[in-house]
């Protein structure tokens, strides 16, 4: 297999709740290779979101080591963390989290804005991504004028535009109906086939079964970490053939 993109050793994380410390992650070991498509499952409170936050450098871990693309991620200031996020990671959220007053194109272009790419250039790139996701004619619409599936596709375009190495998706289909969920998963599979590592947090089995590997968390520990025998890669990659 290829090299590790995410490597985690003995990861611990506790939250302080008043006088009690809530021990959420109790020693996670994880090794995700570049180009993998992995789902993290678990009931609520199992620590799957906390793990995702730490992987996304949105939160600090207490103990253990975390290597992202062979760079050790430690407690760092926010400016540096923002730069890592901007360069390595694309986020997809359950509730889409599009900026309400920006149209589709501007939303997609936003990560490039933080990279100081000129407006003209980033809008051009954003249009290109929207085109690939079949949303070009919606470029000038506000999020409030779009359906859930369309919004999530815009969010995916936004996650992709900064050329991340890893896509972290937190319940990406949680707010979508089954049909749309499958469409979104298909897109994510195609993204994965471009060589981008995709990590999905979900509690839906059918979603998890569309990934190569399923990691089950229980009470802050990895309960099972197994390859998904039923995984079927999408055969017709229409969207990202140009890459």
């Amino acid at each position: 297999m290829s090299k590790s993109i995410i490597k985690v050793d003995g990861l611990h994380k506790s939250y302080r709740m008043g006088n009690n410390a809530l021990h959420v992650l109790k020693g996670i070991d994880l090794d995700i290779k570049a180009g993998e498509m992995v789902s993290i499952m678990g009931s609520s409170g199992s620590g799957k979101s906390t793990l995702l936050n730490i992987l996304g450098i949105l939160d600090n871990h207490d103990r253990g080591d975390y290597y992202l693309d062979n760079v050790k991620i430690e407690r760092m200031n926010e400016t540096k963390a923002a730069r890592y996020r901007n360069n390595y990671i694309g986020f997809i959220f359950q509730s889409f989290n599009l900026i309400s007053f920006k149209n589709a194109m501007e939303n997609v272009a936003l990560p490039l804005y933080y990279k100081n790419v000129s407006r003209k250039k980033r809008n051009m790139q954003a249009l290109e991504y929207l085109d690939r996701l079949g949303l070009k004619e919606w470029a000038n619409h506000l999020p409030s004028e779009l359906s859930g599936g369309q919004k999530q596709r815009i969010a995916i375009a936004r996650a992709l535009i900064s050329n991340p190495k890893v896509i972290l998706a937190d319940e990406p289909t949680g707010a979508l109906d089954t049909q749309t969920s499958y469409e979104v998963m298909e897109i994510l599979q195609e993204v994965n086939q471009m060589g981008i590592t995709v990590i999905i947090v979900t509690h839906e089995d059918d979603i998890a079964h569309r990934t190569q590997r399923i990691i089950r968390l229980r009470d802050g520990l990895i309960e099972r970490n197994e390859m998904n025998g039923k995984y079927q890669p999408v055969t017709t990659s229409e969207i990202f053939t140009t890459n």
Binding site: E78, A82, R85, F91, N97, L110, K115
Partner: peptide, 15 residues
């Protein structure tokens, strides 16, 4: 929420 999203997708604190 909006500021959080912006931060998550790479907005530096200075921004």
């Amino acid at each position: 929420r909006e500021i959080g999203v912006q931060r998550a997708i790479g907005a530096k604190p200075a921004v």
